[in-house]
Structure formats: C-alpha cells, structure tokens
Amino acid sequence: HTVDVQGVTYHFDNPEEARKFAEEMAKRLGLQVHVKDGRYKVE
C-alpha cells in the first residue's frame, strides 16, 4: 500500500496504517487525500 506525499513515496504493509498516515499528513500539511489507482496521494 502506497502513500505519495508531495512526490515522496511511503510504503505500508497494512492498508489501515496507510490510510491513517495519509490522513495525518494531509491534516498536517493542509492538503487533500486523493485515492488514485489504489494509491493514496496527498496533494
């Protein structure tokens, strides 16, 4: 499970961890979480 944050890619084994990380980063950076091709993108 992959999370892209402003061009940096993070990998997680656990989909729940990936989702939480994406939401946390989006909140911290004031950005949105998009799901695209099964990847989380924070932009």
Results as ranks from 00 to 15, higher is better:
Gln32Lys: 14
Lys20Tyr: 12
Pro15Met: 12
Arg28Asp: 07
Thr2Glu: 14
Val35Ser: 05
His1Trp: 11
Val5Leu: 08
Arg19Leu: 14
Arg28Thr: 10
Glu43Ser: 08
Asp13Pro: 11
Arg28Ser: 10
Thr9Phe: 12
Asp37Val: 02
His1Asn: 13
Asp13Lys: 11
Lys27Ser: 11
Val42Ser: 02
Gly38Gln: 04
His34Gln: 11
Ala18Asn: 00
Ala18Thr: 04
Gln32Phe: 10
Gly30Cys: 07
Asp13His: 11
Val5His: 04
Pro15Arg: 13
His34Thr: 15
Glu24Asn: 09
Lys41Arg: 12
Val3Trp: 00
Val42Lys: 01
Asp13Gly: 11
Lys36Ala: 13
His11Pro: 07
Met25Gln: 12
Val42Cys: 03
Glu23Phe: 15
Gly7His: 07
Glu16Lys: 09
Asp4Leu: 08
Lys20Glu: 14
Gln6Glu: 11
His11Ile: 13
Lys27Trp: 09
Asp37Met: 03
Asn14Lys: 12
Gln6Phe: 11
Glu43Leu: 06
Tyr10Trp: 10
Phe12Trp: 04
Glu17Phe: 08
Val8Arg: 12
Leu31Arg: 02
Asp37Ala: 04
Pro15Val: 10
Arg19Val: 07
Val35Gly: 09
Lys36Cys: 07
Glu24Cys: 09
Ala22Gln: 00
Tyr10His: 08
Val35Pro: 02
Lys41Ala: 12
Arg39Thr: 15
Arg28Cys: 08
Met25Ser: 09
Gln32His: 13
Val42Glu: 02
Asp13Ser: 12
Gly7Met: 06
Lys41Tyr: 15
Arg19Glu: 08
Arg19Asp: 04
Gly38Ala: 03
Lys27Phe: 12
Tyr10Phe: 12
Tyr40Gly: 01
Glu16Ala: 10
Arg28Glu: 11
Val8Cys: 06
Glu17Gln: 11
Lys36Met: 13
Thr9Gly: 07
Lys27His: 12
His34Tyr: 14
Glu23Ser: 07
Glu23Tyr: 15
Lys36Arg: 09
Val35Ala: 05
Arg19His: 08
Lys36Thr: 14
His1Leu: 08
Tyr40Trp: 13
Thr2Ala: 14
Val5Gly: 03
Glu43Thr: 08
Phe12Ile: 03
Glu23Met: 11
Lys27Asn: 11
Lys36Phe: 09
Asn14Val: 10
Arg39His: 15
Val5Met: 06
Phe12Asn: 00
Gln6His: 08
Gly7Trp: 05
Ala18Lys: 01
Phe12Arg: 01
Phe12Ala: 01
Ala22Leu: 00
Val42His: 01
Val5Trp: 03
Gly30Arg: 04
Leu31Trp: 10
Phe21Cys: 04
Phe21Gly: 02
His34Met: 11
Arg39Asn: 15
Glu23Trp: 14
His34Cys: 07
Thr9Leu: 14
Arg39Lys: 15
Val33Tyr: 06
Tyr40Val: 03
Asp4Asn: 06
Val35His: 09
Asn14Asp: 14
His11Met: 12
Glu16Met: 10
His34Ile: 15
Asp13Ile: 10
Ala18Tyr: 00
Ala18Ser: 05
Val5Ile: 08
Leu29Trp: 06
Met25Trp: 13
Lys27Arg: 13
Val3Tyr: 00
Asp13Asn: 12
Phe12Gln: 01
Lys41Gln: 15
Gly7Glu: 06
Arg39Pro: 03
Val3His: 00
Glu23Asp: 09
Gly7Gln: 06
Tyr10Gln: 04
Ala26Val: 02
Ala26Cys: 03
Asp13Val: 12
Arg28Lys: 14
His1Ser: 13
Gly7Ile: 02
Lys36Gln: 14
Asp4Ala: 06
Phe21Thr: 03
Asn14Arg: 11
Ala22Lys: 00
Val33Trp: 09
Lys36Ser: 14
His1Val: 10
Glu17Arg: 09
Asp4Glu: 14
Val33Pro: 02
Val35Tyr: 15
Asp37Leu: 03
Glu24Ile: 10
Phe21Gln: 02
Gln6Trp: 08
Tyr40Lys: 01
His1Cys: 09
Leu29Gln: 03
Leu31Phe: 08
Asp4Gln: 08
Glu16Asn: 11
Gly38Cys: 08
Ala22Pro: 00
Val35Asp: 06
Glu24Asp: 13
Asp37Glu: 06
Gly30Pro: 00
Thr2Tyr: 15
Ala18Phe: 00
His1Phe: 12
Glu24Tyr: 12
Met25Leu: 07
Thr9Ala: 10
Phe12Met: 04
Met25Asn: 07
Val8Asn: 11
Val3Gly: 00
Leu29Thr: 04
Val8Tyr: 12
Glu23Pro: 00
Val5Thr: 04
Lys41Phe: 15
Arg19Lys: 13
Arg28Val: 11
Gly38Ile: 02
Lys41Ser: 15
